[in-house]
Design a binder for these strands. Structure first.
Length: 316
DNA sequence: TGCCAGGCGGGGT
DNA sequence: ACCCCGCATGGC
């Protein structure tokens, strides 16, 4: 098994004054990474490194090789120094997100490696929230790699190489025809055509252009990945679900929803798009429209998996 | 049991 | 620039 060395422990302090770590760790997390008290955070998949972060701010760092950069990298992944004041100001009183933003002021989006963000996007294609996250759970369980961090064990998502080495297992994970796209992405990484560093310096347009050149990766998947990996929020991933909700709430035509959303949220449009999925518990479109009409605009469901509650469910 | 769902690409017009 | 269809899979 992969052995990760203990690379140090420390307490997050002043950074936490405005952060609600439970919300940061709970949103879009799996039960095998977060148990309500502490969560595994992936710092690096290539040269594996993880952090175990408790809701009280205590941090343990582990890696195949230790690096001074782990502390800064963790802060980046958790978003604890991200200044969202402009976002919250812009969202105050918004008919769709206003209430959610008041309650989730301490939430920050956790980042994923580019490779994994793209897989997340692909699994959302033409599937319900629940089916998509079940695929991801299956991929980690069937193809992931176990690592020992100190006296604990952690399951890491497969990297591109692991996926290429056992691509047939993708079908077992229930991803259907998406398997081809995931393999295409894995090849792009493996052959060096694509890397997280490569896109970092590009603006969102250029990065999107680069990503959609992979067969099976379109605008939605590319933009979701830009938000989930780089906090590039200026190009929002607006799918049919969000488009229909925007049309309902703001009274615009569905085909103009994306343009409206970009205008409304500016540099925060991508984060706002993701926030809507959390606020509405990612329920299927009909129910989401119904909730919007009834004004239920923050997470309320506990008994079924939702973006905010899925960490409680061993099986999605 | 048949639909059909946070997309996508390829084919039409 | 649109519009429309098929697509693997699993849940309702």
């Amino acid at each position: 098994m992969l052995e990760l060395k203990a690379c140090g422990e420390y307490q997050l302090e002043e950074e936490l004054s405005s952060i609600d770590l439970h919300k940061v760790l709970a949103v879009y997390n799996f039960s095998f990474w977060y148990d309500g008290r502490s969560s595994w955070i992936i710092l690096d998949l290539r040269d594996p490194a993880v952090a175990l972060v408790s809701t009280d701010g205590y941090v343990r760092l582990y890696g195949v090789t230790c690096s001074e950069d782990f502390v800064g990298e963790l802060e980046h992944v958790l978003g604890i120094s991200e200044d969202l004041s402009g976002f919250f100001k812009l969202g105050a009183g918004d008919p769709l997100l206003g209430e959610f933003l008041r309650e989730f002021k301490g939430w920050r989006l956790r980042l994923s490696p580019l490779w994994w963000s793209l897989v997340i996007g692909v699994c959302q294609q033409n599937a319900s929230f629940r089916q998509g996250w079940r695929m991801l759970q299956n991929i980690v369980k069937l193809l992931g790699k176990a690592a020992r961090a100190g006296d604990r064990e952690v399951l890491l998502p497969p990297g591109p190489e692991e996926v290429l080495a056992s691509a047939s297992k993708l079908r077992e994970a229930g991803v259907g025809y998406r398997a081809g796209t995931i393999v295409n992405i894995a090849k792009a990484f493996s052959q060096g055509e694509l890397s997280e560093e490569l896109l970092k310096g590009l603006n969102s347009r250029e990065a999107e252009e680069n990503l959609v050149s992979i067969r099976g990766v379109g605008k939605y998947t590319a933009r979701l990945a830009l938000a989930l990996t780089y906090r590039k929020y200026d190009l929002p991933p607006v799918d049919r679900w969000l488009g229909a909700i925007i049309a309902e709430v703001y009274g615009v035509e569905e085909k103009k929803a994306e343009g409206f959303w970009s205008m409304r949220w500016g540099e925060w449009a991508g984060l706002a798009a993701i926030a809507v999925t959390v606020a509405l518990d990612a329920v299927p479109l009909r129910k989401a429209l119904d909730r919007v009409r009834r004004g239920i605009l923050k997470p309320v469901l506990e008994d079924i998996p939702t973006p905010y509650s899925m960490w409680r469910f061993a099986r999605l």
